[in-house]
Simulated scan of single mutants.
Amino acid sequence: MNAGESDNDRPLLALLIRLLGIAGLATMAALIKFASERGIHLIELLFWRQAIAIPILLVWAMLSGGVMTLATKRPKAHLARGLYGLAGMVLNFGAVVLLPLAEATTIGFSAPIFAVILSVILLKETIGVWRWSAVAAGFAGIIVIAQPGGGHIPLYGALVALGGAFMIALISIQIRDLSRTEKSLVIVFWFAVTSSVCLLPVVPFVSKAHSFEDWMLLLVIGLAGTFGQLGITLALRYGQVSSVIVMDYSSIVWATIYGWLLFAMLPPATTWLGAPLIVAAGLIIAWRERIVARNRFADQRGAAGT
């Protein structure tokens, strides 16, 4: 067993679940952009994305052991995860609305870069030349895509996307911690409840009458988002963050396909130049974290045997 792994770790299963979860979230993101262009307000999109998940998760809980399976002894941790998650949703949904799908998705790949920076600031970890080089390469890729001052995308939108990526890095650490004691269903349920309660007072001020098609669109957004959220959360129960996050890069394929099919948009040359730098940075970071964890585990076993 590698460092940081638990008895529940199943790496291949974790990768597959994460891949399916990312497909669900990519579908949700495309539909959010489509719904925004139909005039549905961002706050309303956020609310229905989460509110629709609650009855689905309640039914799931009743079928798998009863509502009491949703009980938790860590309400403060769930509240923090809910507030951070809501902030992350605002930023990530906002990025999808403000930017082309491929660009919003690609900038979101900078989450591992922020995870490295957070590990230095919050965990006081020592980071070597490989990971610092990856951080530099990743930010270079972001600059190539955003082209501050003269790019094809608004700088404000790029900054919103970067903020969303930062929150993904922070939330991934939270979820991994919660997954040690809480089931994936419990984590997703309390996130949906917390964010829905926070958004509910604002919804009446931004909502408007919708057509049947709009309501169906909101329903599918909620279903796709719930499926995706369960997938990426469950993956962190069976695998390490540094391993499963590799599957997140599959979303650029979905973003490109949806951008072409729904919005007749393909990424420009700058995105194709910058994206490999950001993806390579994330892969290098994941690889180095894996090596560092294994070396730490080997040192601990050596110390225990002396």
Rank of each mutant, 00 (worst) to 15 (best):
132 W>D: 04
279 V>G: 00
188 V>E: 04
207 S>Y: 05
158 A>N: 01
19 L>M: 11
114 F>P: 02
58 L>Q: 07
54 I>A: 07
103 E>F: 06
86 L>F: 04
238 Y>C: 06
19 L>T: 13
228 G>V: 09
111 A>F: 15
15 L>H: 14
86 L>R: 14
175 I>D: 10
129 V>P: 03
52 I>D: 06
81 R>F: 05
278 I>R: 03
246 V>L: 11
24 G>F: 00
4 G>H: 06
229 Q>M: 08
267 P>S: 05
109 F>V: 07
164 G>A: 07
217 L>V: 13
118 L>N: 10
258 Y>S: 15
280 A>N: 07
50 Q>F: 08
183 K>V: 11
94 G>L: 00
89 M>N: 13
19 L>D: 10
269 A>R: 02
296 R>M: 14
155 L>R: 02
221 I>P: 01
125 E>M: 12
147 Q>W: 03
86 L>D: 10
110 S>F: 03
229 Q>E: 05
23 A>K: 10
197 V>S: 07
132 W>L: 05
37 E>H: 15
78 H>G: 11
68 M>G: 10
132 W>T: 03
117 I>M: 14
275 A>P: 05
130 W>H: 11
48 W>E: 09
94 G>T: 00
160 V>R: 02
221 I>F: 05
267 P>I: 00
106 T>N: 00
69 T>Q: 09
265 M>C: 02
264 A>F: 07
216 M>T: 07
85 G>S: 13
118 L>Q: 12
19 L>K: 04
144 V>N: 06
226 T>F: 01
169 A>F: 07
117 I>H: 08
104 A>E: 03
80 A>K: 12
182 E>C: 02
22 I>W: 15
288 R>K: 12
122 L>R: 15
291 I>E: 09
190 W>G: 08
283 L>N: 01
280 A>Y: 09
118 L>P: 09
291 I>D: 11
81 R>P: 09
215 W>Q: 07
103 E>W: 10
202 V>I: 15
195 S>P: 01
